[in-house]
Amino acid sequence: MKALGALGWIYLAALFTFVFAPIAASVVFSFNSDRFPTLPLGHFTTDWYARAFSRPEVWEAISNSLIVAGVTSVIATFIGFATAYTDFRYGFRFKQAYLALALLPPTLPLVILGLAMLAWLSQVGLSGTLTGIIIAHVVLATPFAMAICRLRLSQMDPSLESAAWNLGAGPWTAMRYVILPFCAPAIVSALCLTAAVSFDEFVVAWFVSGLNRTVPVLILEILQGNVDPQINAIGTVVFLTSMSLVVAAQFMIFRRRRNG
């Protein structure tokens, strides 16, 4: 039995190594002097960072990404919360279809969504704009916001809202003084997570972006050219940004749970 336990640890470690190797490698390679890294590694350098971030298009992409992620997170969180609240509060005909609308988008291959978006947005004159990317990212990110808010609402005593009415609060006042404060951690969480989803998404963004590239789309275009360790440098920065958002989101959820 002891041997089996040791074997289990080794197996688990191997699997985690496989999953995390590319992430770790890209961080390591970003500080490595070789253009074609191999073992043994070359010497330490921050050259790739210096080169990547001296390119104006990188800064432009970063600014695009921040705008897209920021606006996406606000809209997606609002829609996600409204949907979660509707699901929590109301039963109605066609609710299954309503919820399917809320949860299906992430199961559709991104390439297909990209094509459909490109075709539709060019019909309405929005393809190639940041607005187009935001529209598509809200479609993709809303389900995540919805899931987080719904989870929080399911931890709420359903009488809480009625209690507010009972004490003299109208529906909107109860929303403002009871439901929103209760959901606040989930809402912050959803803002972070949807921003992270948008910040990393490159397929749909690539289809609809035109000349307004976000960071991942820029990576994709560099990648189509040639092997270039600048990608590791940019990728590491993107990774750190997303991770801080995710960690912040997790932190909000956990802090809340500890406090009951």
């Binding site: 190797a21 992430i23 490698a25 890209s26 890294p37 990648l223 990608i231 990774f239």
Partner: peptide, 17 residues
Amino acid sequence: VPFFTSFLVRAYAWQVI
């Protein structure tokens, strides 16, 4: 964690590895 790292960057890392 991997869901929030760019799959592109990971694919590129595999290219090198």
